[in-house]
């Protein structure tokens, strides 16, 4: 309850902070639109030339794009704004402002994960879910309570996994405050726009095990194609759970290091 209240007030103050600049709203809207248009046109151009891509047709590929956009939006809603304040040359770890975070009587990982919100990301979320809705309607399959529920569960697993990965990168900042680990990930994460199945086998392997972006976008989309079975859901759920525990350990180790090394 206490933590939920905290999240509420963090979100409120972030919204206020963002409203201080009116232009932010328009820029954000423009970027959302560009993101959407380039994504959809990219898929459209491809399927003007071909019927299917390794078994993926236009609606199924659009569904992946919808999940990709939604996942990106949820990430941009609070995970990235919060974790990104730690990293980089003007980040809290480098400037030492992290001291204030450590001094608060609240768990450090909780603060680092939920402190900053970017409410305009809700626009992206709406657009992403809109693309997904259109794609699924095109597939001819209808929304059932079962598919919606398994989609929600798969999306929650995907976000947990994405959070775990980003938390590890944030934790690595305590070892090397200047290095932007997230950049590497962001680059690779763009590959999740398309089904993992279209990539060469070696890359598929990398994208499933090393950087599990396949689980992040492909699995939730499969909730609507009917390819999602319970064992896959449970398997990826366990995987996400282990990942988030490991990530939390790395992060805490980093915080300890900060406390024993900084001057």
């Amino acid at each position: 309850m206490y933590h939920l209240r905290l999240i509420g007030s963090f979100a409120k103050i972030s919204a206020q902070n963002e409203m201080a600049y009116r232009a932010n709203f328009w820029i954000s809207l423009l970027n959302s639109a560009l993101n959407l248009v380039t994504g959809i046109l990219g898929v459209w151009v491809l399927f003007e030339q071909i019927e299917t891509l390794n078994g993926w047709d236009l609606p199924a590929t659009l569904a992946i794009l919808g999940v990709y956009l939604s996942v990106g939006a949820l990430r941009g809603l609070f995970i990235s704004p919060s974790l990104d304040t730690l990293t980089g040359m003007d980040g809290e770890v480098w400037t030492g402002k992290f001291d204030f975070t450590l001094l608060k009587p609240v768990d450090v990982q909780f603060q680092a994960s939920f402190r900053h919100w970017h409410p305009l990301a809700l626009i992206d979320l709406a657009l992403g879910l809109g693309v997904l809705y259109l794609a699924v309607s095109q597939m001819g399959s209808s929304f059932t309570a079962g598919s919606l529920l398994s989609f929600a569960v798969a999306l929650a697993i995907a976000m947990t996994l994405l959070y775990a990965i980003l938390l590890v990168f944030a934790g690595l900042v305590f070892w090397s405050p200047g290095f932007l680990f997230t950049w590497v990930f962001d680059g690779i994460f763009q590959m999740a726009r398309y089904p993992v199945g279209i990539y060469p086998t070696w890359l598929q392997w990398l994208l499933t095990w090393l950087v599990p972006i396949g689980i992040i976008t492909t699995v939730p989309a499969e909730a609507f194609t009917g390819n999602l079975n319970l064992s896959m859901l449970v398997g990826s759920g366990l995987f996400a759970l282990v990942a988030v525990i490991c990530a939390s350990l790395v992060f805490r180790l980093g915080v300890r290091r900060y406390a024993s090394a900084s001057s």
């Binding site: 990219g42 491809l46 071909i50 690779i188 763009q190 590959m191 398309y194 060469p200």
Partner: peptide
């Protein structure tokens, strides 16, 4: 900067 063209390299060569 390399990644977006690389994605379309894979997409089109698979296609």
């Amino acid at each position: 900067w390399m990644i977006p063209p690389l994605i379309y390299l894979f997409v089109w060569s698979t296609a």
